[in-house]
Computed example of a mutant assay.
Amino acid sequence: MTRVLVSGGAGFVGRFIVEHLMQNGHEVIVGGRTPPPTGCFSRPVDFVPLFLDPDLNQSAAFDDAEGFVHTAFEHVEGKYRGGEGDDPDGFRRANIDGTVRLFEAARTAGVKRCVFLSSRAVYGSRLVGTVDETTPTAPDTLYGDVKAIAENRLRALATENFIPASLRVTGVYGAAGPGRQHKWTELFAGYLDEKPIQPRIGTEVHGDDVGAAVRLMLEADSATVRGEAFNVSDLLLDVRQILSVVQRLTSCPHALPEAATAERYLVMSTEKLRRLGWQPGGFERLVTTIGDLVRNSRPA
């Protein structure tokens, strides 16, 4: 069993990671600005205050931790791209300087493994087709730039005893937890209310599959993951495909939106991660999850 500190562990993606690690034998501490709400996790977890503030010495948060998973991100609520709002300098300071200060504190405290939750945004939006981890990063948003810089700063901290890895994660789907709405809540409601739905397309991965990727970074041979970045993605989906599952499950008679074209969409290859044994849930998991989301959103 490994004791792992997860920053932002009560967030949408962080919660999946915490649950996956707990279910696979790891002891988890959640770090964040405030304690997680009651019932956030399937069982109680320890909590330590943790902030994206480069002026704070937070080394005590890493006492007895063998792993550190950094999912916390300072941004305008509901936004990642554009999450800087009207304070790009503060955005950079928190998400670069604050993040690196945590990486350094973890290494100094003797943490052995460090996993950074990065983003497909490091590749930018100008590229099309399929990219792998050898493709040069080319962020064209502040969000992507911040993630790419943090990746590079973490990689530079690697030693024989400090094993960092970055996961370039695409859109994450799944149940949002008690009292929260899942990412497709408005999409499902709009379709069922027969509101116009614009065609759009994106790549998705289930939150538990992200948790499995994180666990691999903590458990895989150190030489395999030290200083490496891995793409984390599963399905290329347009809203028509998503809503076709909703249509079938609810017997809704409303027409589906037009299909979106994937002609100029960027897809990340995940072969590098799959070679370590990672196997996402694919379309079967998507259908099962949408079924759960639909059932749990219906009035009792």
Rank of each mutant, 00 (worst) to 15 (best):
T130C: 08
V146T: 06
Q181K: 14
G32T: 12
T34H: 08
N24T: 15
T224W: 09
A220N: 05
G83N: 09
L192A: 07
D238P: 05
A262G: 14
E228D: 01
A61F: 03
Y265V: 07
S125V: 01
A229R: 01
K79D: 11
L216P: 08
E284I: 12
T2S: 14
P178A: 11
K183F: 10
G78R: 10
G211Q: 04
M1L: 12
N296C: 09
G39W: 02
A165W: 04
A189G: 13
R113M: 00
H70Y: 02
A72Y: 04
S251L: 09
R33L: 11
D292L: 10
L50K: 08
P253S: 10
F188Y: 14
T99I: 10
L157D: 01
A212M: 09
L127F: 03
V69S: 02
E84L: 00
H26V: 11
V146C: 06
S125K: 11
V28F: 01
V18C: 14
R155I: 05
R264T: 11
P164W: 03
N57H: 13
G291L: 03
F91I: 03
G110K: 07
M22E: 07
S118V: 06
D221P: 06
L127N: 05
L127G: 06
Y265Q: 12
E194R: 13
N296A: 11
D234K: 12
R295T: 13
G83K: 05
R248K: 15
T250W: 06
P196M: 06
S233T: 13
G39D: 10
A156G: 11
A255N: 13
V205E: 00
Q279L: 14
A223L: 05
R92L: 08
W184I: 03
H254E: 11
V122A: 09
G83W: 05
E284S: 11
E228Y: 00
G129T: 04
E77F: 10
A175D: 15
P178Y: 09
L52K: 01
F41I: 12
P35R: 09
R155Q: 12
T288K: 14
S297N: 15
R285C: 03
Y265W: 11
G190S: 07
R43M: 01
C114P: 00
L21R: 07
S119Q: 02
A223P: 01
D63A: 15
A156R: 06
S244M: 07
D145F: 02
I29F: 01
F116N: 04
G171Y: 13
E84Y: 04
V13I: 11
V225N: 02
P196F: 09
R15W: 07
G282Y: 09
V232M: 04
R101I: 03
